[in-house]
Design a binder for these strands. Structure first.
Ligand SMILES: [Zn+2]
Ligand SMILES: [Zn+2]
Length: 120
DNA sequence: GAAAACGTATGT
DNA sequence: ACATACGTTTTC
């Protein structure tokens, strides 16, 4: 069955562009295209509220908690079926365990995390 | 800072 | 158990 991702928070005041909202669990995972954030309550709970580390990265590490996102299926590279066999991912796929660069989901690329996608 | 390697979540 | 591929860590 297909598990479609949570639509949008679209409450008028959209805090995030959209993308990768995770099945919002009891946890406070808030996965946005700008990264993964979590509520302050969760931060406090994690015991690193005001930690000398890079807050957002720390949050991301905790919130991520080993959860992996999946390809969106909407971008151009996603529907691709076969690897090009020419990129380093293809050539080293055995060792790097990475998808072909031509197939890499744009939404999963860090660059996409900065794109603000307006859909008028 | 980018690429490769590794470990591992996820699905079959 | 095996295959696929994301995320982190390590290496260059
Ligand atoms: Zn390739
Ligand atoms: Zn995609």
């Amino acid at each position: 069955m297909e598990a479609w991702r949570v639509p949008k928070p679209s409450t008028g005041q959209s805090d995030f562009p959209y993308l990768g909202a995770f099945p919002i669990s009891p946890g406070v995972f808030i996965m946005t295209s700008a990264g993964v954030f979590l509520a302050e309550s969760a931060l406090h709970m994690a015991g690193l509220a005001g930690y000398p580390m890079q807050g957002e990265l720390a949050s991301a590490a905790i919130s991520s908690a080993g959860k992996k996102r999946k390809r969106c299926g909407l971008c151009a590279p996603c529907p691709r079926r076969i690897g090009c066999e020419q990129c380093s991912s293809c050539k080293n796929r055995k060792a790097s365990h990475q998808i072909c660069k031509l197939r890499k989901c744009e939404e999963l690329k860090p660059s996409a995390a900065l794109e603000v996608t307006y859909t008028p």
